[in-house]
């Protein structure tokens, strides 16, 4: 009945050792408090620093402070989708039950992060650009990311048989992964109203160091926070699944007797 404990363990491969729910619960129970502490700590420092102690921009004034929530949310929404796509690949190839649950739990949190990115971006665009929204390649591709998250959420819940929902959702998530490079490079490939990236792998960040530090703190905080929320939801999902299994087993027992 319990699909998780029924999975044969492959020795020596940590990914499969995690498929054992007891082992996952023990490990995640130790990791979760650390994630929560790091998430709260880094986010609080980054946002207070960004809001009150970082310098205003020479041309944007204080509106630049919106960056400290907008940019981390944007990074986390893309990174979350990488996680969703990775779980989907693991689910499709190795039929890993924990990856199925993780994909279901990442979806809504990623959609939330993308919503933060879109709303704060709009609140930044109105005073600086002069518009809440434009259909340029960057904004549109992030909106597509939001719809991909929503589509995944709907699809995994659309089937009576959860397994089929996991398969369909995983395929959608993997196809949708083509949106990630489009988001990243949209500002370089096409004319957009959105400016190119400030922080790149290849060059020096075109940002004053007094603004860069709070941004990096906030980004770390958002990442740990995202991890904490997903881990907590995943723990709850594993428990709910075990609960369903136990209740079902009991119902069958009482029917048999």
């Amino acid at each position: 009945m319990d699909a998780i404990s029924a999975t044969p363990a492959v020795p020596g491969r940590s990914l499969f050792r995690l498929a054992n729910p007891g082992r996952f619960m023990r490990l995640s129970g130790r990791v979760l408090p650390v994630l929560i502490a790091l998430g709260l700590g880094f986010t609080a420092v980054g946002l207070v620093w960004g809001m009150f102690f970082s310098p205003a921009d020479w041309q944007q004034g204080d509106a630049v402070r919106i960056m400290y929530v907008h940019v981390p949310a944007a990074w986390v929404s893309s990174a979350g989708y990488v996680g969703l796509a990775a779980c989907s690949a693991i689910s499709l190839i190795w039929r890993h039950p924990l990856a199925d649950l993780a994909a279901v739990e990442i979806g809504p949190v990623g959609a939330g992060a993308t919503a933060i990115c879109l709303i704060t971006g709009s609140l930044w665009g109105e005073p600086m650009w002069g518009t809440w929204w434009v259909w340029d390649a960057r904004l549109t591709s992030v909106l597509v990311l939001f719809f991909l998250y929503l589509g995944h959420m709907a699809l995994v819940r659309a089937f009576d048989e959860p397994e089929r929902g996991y398969r369909a959702g995983a395929i959608l998530a993997l196809i949708g992964a083509v949106d990630l490079p489009i988001i990243k490079f949209s500002v370089d490939w096409w004319n957009t109203l959105h400016q190119p990236d400030t922080i790149t792998v290849t060059g020096a960040p075109t940002m004053y160091v007094g603004m860069l530090w709070p941004l990096l703190f906030a980004a770390l905080g958002f990442s740990f926070g995202f991890g904490a929320i997903v881990t907590a939801r995943l723990r709850a999902a594993v428990m709910e699944r075990r609960l369903r299994g136990l209740l079902l087993a009991r119902a069958e027992e009482s029917l048999a007797s």
Partner: peptide, 9 residues
């Protein structure tokens, strides 16, 4: 359309 540089006044 502002650029991608951020610096204090």
């Amino acid at each position: 359309k502002h650029d991608e540089t951020y610096m204090p006044k």
